[in-house]
């Protein structure tokens, strides 16, 4: 199973297994990781699963998957950066094994 490293704003690291086909937001929720809220559950309606993809993975993960995601990222609570994504829109593939994401200080 591919793994994802979630790094909290205070530097705490959590290395978790996230199944293929599952999204990065759910990986955090299933493991009680604070820092990803995901209150709408992946409906592209809340912008509370914001993450910063690590620079080393930015090209592999790519840009927002849709205009909806891009629009929502405009409204996130912590500052939007070049590698900002909504973690519910990053779906795990074999290529993303080892992915590193940084969680913002706050989601709302």
């Amino acid at each position: 199973m591919p793994s994802v490293t979630y790094i909290a704003a205070d530097g705490t690291q959590h290395v978790l297994d996230v199944p293929l086909g599952e999204n990065v937001m759910r990986g955090a929720l299933y493991n009680d990781i604070e820092g990803i809220v995901g209150e709408c559950g992946g409906a592209l309606s809340c912008a509370t699963c914001h993450c910063y993809v690590d620079e080393a993975w930015a090209a592999m993960v790519g840009q927002p998957a849709s205009k909806d995601e891009d629009d929502l990222l405009e409204g996130v609570s912590s500052p939007r950066k070049a590698t900002s994504r909504l973690s519910c829109q990053i779906v795990m593939t074999a290529e993303l094994d080892g992915l590193v994401v940084h969680m913002p200080d706050h989601q709302y």
Binding site: E39, C40, G41, S45, C46, D68, L72, G75
Partner: peptide
């Protein structure tokens, strides 16, 4: 796009 409160928000969304 804004949060429509049809399904509430927060943990109990």
């Amino acid at each position: 796009r804004q949060i429509v409160l049809a399904f509430t928000v927060g943990a109990h969304s």
